[in-house]
Simulated scan of single mutants.
Amino acid sequence: MDRLQAMIVFVRVLEAGSFSGAARVLGVGQPAVSKTVAQLEQRLNVKLLLRSTHGLTPTEAGLRFYERARLAIQEADEAELAARGAGGGLSGRLRISAAPTFARLHVIPHLPQFLEAHPGLDVDVVLDDRMIDLIAEGIDISLRLGKLADTGAVARKLASSRCSVLATAEYLTQKGRPQVPADLADHETIVYTQLDNVWKFRREGTEVSVMIHGRARFSAAEGIRAAVLADMGLTIASDWMFAPELANNRVLRLLESWSLPDTDLWAVFPTGRLATAKARLFAKFVESVMKESH
């Protein structure tokens, strides 16, 4: 039995909470995962997991082994990284999660460059606007936008984007252009349900809050984009969300003398786990891409 591989399997089982979850993360069959854990327990001559109809529970020995094993895996990653120099020759699987719209516009177009630099590396990209459980899904790094709900998260800010009130030129031709925040009450507003429906504007030390009651509400950013581009109304969004349309003036910024809070891009790593060398390198890659293109 490959000792390091057995450690990786066991760590993934514990973090996923099931053999099937670990199998999905590792890209292998569930029987192979179960067999590896059973062989590991036989070799160590100790029970690592208690199996029941309610799931898997680590024994005291299993918890001790988990803590040592994940550190050993991290050390092995670091050793390979140091030997290969500057992250060259990374291999294995990297699981990334990101918001679909942001990933489609700013990450996926650059993935060929990252993969070309690391031909031994495979990537799984999980696209979801919602906050997902990184450990349960076996995610190595999550790219998240805005404020972090989990203040205890292991995270690093990669970039920031200006936020503005945005609308298409066609919509403004039909409905007119708001001159002050209060004018937004006379416009169709497109609401992103995962954000606060109070828009706070600042100018020269003055803050104005506007309560938004949009008729069109969307739970995903891609819906916001589609609605704005269909000339349905105006919205508040980061420049990232409408980068192509801002560049060709199809979408315009409004109330530019007023400022809104910036949107931050974060690299978030699973709490309780050391960030892998692959995840840290990908975070640096995304950071460099955002600096170069914006």
Score class of each variant (00 low, 15 high):
1 M>N: 13
2 D>I: 04
8 I>H: 11
9 V>G: 02
10 F>L: 06
11 V>P: 12
15 E>N: 11
15 E>M: 08
15 E>G: 13
15 E>Q: 13
16 A>P: 01
18 S>D: 05
21 G>F: 02
24 R>H: 11
32 A>E: 12
32 A>F: 02
33 V>K: 03
38 A>P: 00
40 L>W: 08
41 E>M: 07
43 R>F: 10
46 V>D: 14
49 L>N: 05
50 L>P: 00
50 L>T: 11
52 S>D: 09
54 H>K: 10
55 G>L: 09
55 G>C: 08
56 L>S: 04
57 T>V: 15
60 E>L: 13
62 G>V: 00
66 Y>C: 09
66 Y>F: 15
68 R>D: 11
69 A>E: 08
72 A>L: 13
74 Q>Y: 12
75 E>F: 05
76 A>D: 14
77 D>Y: 03
80 E>Q: 13
81 L>P: 00
81 L>D: 12
82 A>W: 03
89 G>W: 04
89 G>Q: 08
90 L>T: 00
91 S>E: 12
92 G>W: 00
94 L>H: 02
94 L>E: 04
95 R>F: 01
96 I>D: 07
96 I>L: 13
99 A>T: 02
99 A>S: 09
105 L>Y: 09
107 V>A: 02
107 V>S: 03
107 V>C: 03
108 I>D: 08
111 L>A: 01
111 L>C: 00
112 P>M: 00
113 Q>E: 13
114 F>R: 04
115 L>F: 08
115 L>D: 02
116 E>A: 15
116 E>P: 00
118 H>M: 06
124 D>T: 11
124 D>E: 12
128 D>A: 12
129 D>A: 11
130 R>N: 10
131 M>D: 14
132 I>C: 00
133 D>W: 02
137 E>F: 05
142 S>R: 06
146 G>W: 06
146 G>A: 09
151 T>P: 01
152 G>N: 12
153 A>I: 02
153 A>H: 02
155 A>I: 03
156 R>P: 02
159 A>S: 09
161 S>G: 00
162 R>M: 01
164 S>K: 04
165 V>I: 14
167 A>S: 10
175 K>L: 00
179 Q>M: 09
179 Q>C: 05
182 A>F: 11
188 E>R: 10
189 T>R: 14
191 V>T: 14
192 Y>R: 09
193 T>I: 08
195 L>N: 15
199 W>C: 05
200 K>C: 09
202 R>N: 10
203 R>C: 14
204 E>P: 01
208 V>E: 13
211 M>S: 12
213 H>F: 07
215 R>D: 11
219 S>Y: 04
222 E>C: 01
223 G>S: 03
223 G>R: 08
224 I>C: 08
224 I>L: 14
230 A>K: 09
230 A>P: 06
232 M>A: 05
240 W>Y: 13
242 F>K: 04
244 P>C: 07
247 A>Q: 15
248 N>K: 03
249 N>I: 05
250 R>F: 00
251 V>R: 08
252 L>W: 01
257 S>H: 13
259 S>L: 08
261 P>H: 06
261 P>W: 11
262 D>Y: 10
264 D>I: 01
266 W>L: 06
266 W>G: 07
273 R>W: 06
274 L>E: 12
275 A>M: 05
284 K>D: 15
285 F>N: 07
287 E>D: 13
288 S>H: 10
289 V>F: 08
289 V>Y: 04
290 M>R: 07
291 K>L: 12
292 E>S: 15
293 S>H: 12
